[in-house]
Amino acid sequence: MWKWLHPYAKPEKSYNLAGKMLPWFALFSAISLTIGMVWGFVFAPADYQQGDSFRIIYLHVPAASLSMGAYLSMAIAAFIGLVWQLKMADMAVAAIAPIGAVFTAIALFTGAVWGKPMWGAWWVWDARLTSELILLFLYLGVIAIYGAFSDKLLAGRAAGILALVGVINLPVIHYSVEWWNTLHQKATISKFDKPSMDTDMLWPLLINLLGFGLLFGTLTLMRFRNELITRESHRPWVKKLFIEDK
């Protein structure tokens, strides 16, 4: 497998591979988000307790789970970058951090506008909300540290260490609703139990989860390609791409 993987460690190969995958990720993300959102917002039945306000779940849950999934993939990239000193892993960290920050901001914002009509409060300082807010600060920290060094090798290392330390926050977010008393409801979909949701509501949620995941992939590929051509702008392969011979 390593022999097969090896050529992709070349920036040029990665750039081309990312470019080939990009339109498919974009296409399937657009398709699944369209289906999922129309199904969720128009066709899914209203909740017997929360009425139509529950439809916020179709934005809130995918954004929140992807905010954690993005962090995990960023941390794995950071680990690879620190241990094997692979430059492209650092670029992946830099590419993912802003996307993760946006997903986290969406999770927090949609949570607040869902909390106001249901709990009567935009914000409570309980474990789930606070740990998700810390996740946002971790993302912002990684972005700030990466931007603070003009030496990008150093920047990647420093940002990578913060990304790895921050992994401790992930289980805290995930189990916060079980470890502490909170207004936040328990997990709707769990690996071990039957989902606590009717299938008419569950299907659009799963499709939206897939759509957000593919959107995350699309944006990551786009930003990763940006990072690659910025860092390699002096290399012949980049020049060959954008400068036509006279």
Binding site: D52, S53, I99, V113, P117
Partner: peptide, 29 residues
């Protein structure tokens, strides 16, 4: 069902933030 303000506020924020991230990425390229 009376929750229009909250639901559409959530939708608007999500669309706006994801949209601007996408546009920013394309402009950056």
């Amino acid at each position: 069902g009376g929750y229009g303000f909250y639901v559409w506020l959530a939708v608007a924020f999500s669309l706006l933030s994801l949209g601007s991230l996408t546009v920013a990425t394309i402009v950056k390229r």
